Amino acid sequence: MFAISWKRIRNQKFKSVITIIAMATILLLTSYGIQASKETQVIVMDNLENYSRGSYDILVRPEGSRTIIEEHLQTVEENYIGDGTGGISIAEWEKIKNHPEVEIAAPVASLGYFVVTQLR
């Protein structure tokens, strides 16, 4: 059986060489594609973790508007706007915006909320 296979390979050298090259190419490109896909995933996750803005530079809210969780943790949750109570007036916002040490003061309205699922 092996002798017949070997004889066929020798007699059809061009087809055999092309088949071997094609198989090797498929194997190499598949491996490269899987590696590139994994590397891209790592780069995207790294960019999301390092360059997404989640922390406030400064958060201005009226006195007494801290939640129980904020009191307990002594911090404001990431990307947390508010619980629907309190807020500053337009006049207070204008005063903050015109302060010489404030670069940007943007009013923010909370219309709802969403839960972010962890990326895999």
Rank of each mutant, 00 (worst) to 15 (best):
V60W: 02
T40N: 14
D83T: 08
E92C: 02
S52N: 12
D83W: 03
N98L: 05
I34P: 00
G84K: 05
N50A: 11
Y80T: 02
L73C: 02
E71I: 00
M45C: 01
S31L: 05
N79Y: 04
R66L: 15
P62D: 07
G82D: 01
Y32V: 06
N47S: 08
N98M: 07
K95F: 02
E49H: 06
L59A: 14
N98E: 12
Q35H: 10
S55W: 03
S89D: 07
E103D: 14
E77A: 15
P100E: 09
S37A: 06
Q41A: 13
E63F: 02
N98F: 03
E77D: 14
Q74W: 00
L59Q: 03
G86Y: 05
G87E: 06
R66E: 14
T75C: 09
R61N: 00
R53N: 08
Y51G: 05
G64P: 03
D83H: 04
Y80E: 06
V60Y: 00
E103F: 08
M45N: 15
Y80A: 08
R66W: 13
S89T: 15
E101Q: 10
I90Q: 11
G64K: 07
H99Q: 03
N47V: 10
G33S: 13
I96Q: 06
R61Q: 05
A91P: 08
L27M: 12
E101A: 09
G87Y: 00
G87K: 03
L29W: 08
L28E: 06
W93L: 15
E71Y: 13
E103L: 12
E78D: 14
R53A: 08
G54Y: 07
V76P: 01
V76A: 13
S37Q: 10
R53W: 01
Y51S: 13
L27Q: 00
I81R: 01
D46V: 00
H72R: 12
D83A: 10
K97A: 15
I88L: 09
A36R: 09
G84E: 07
L29M: 11
G33R: 06
R61L: 02
I69T: 15
N98S: 14
I90G: 02
G86V: 00
R66C: 04
I104L: 14
L59Y: 11
N79G: 03
G33Q: 09
H99T: 12
Q41Y: 01
P100Q: 10
Y32E: 13
V102H: 04
E101R: 03
N47Y: 10
S52W: 02
I58M: 15
Q74L: 07
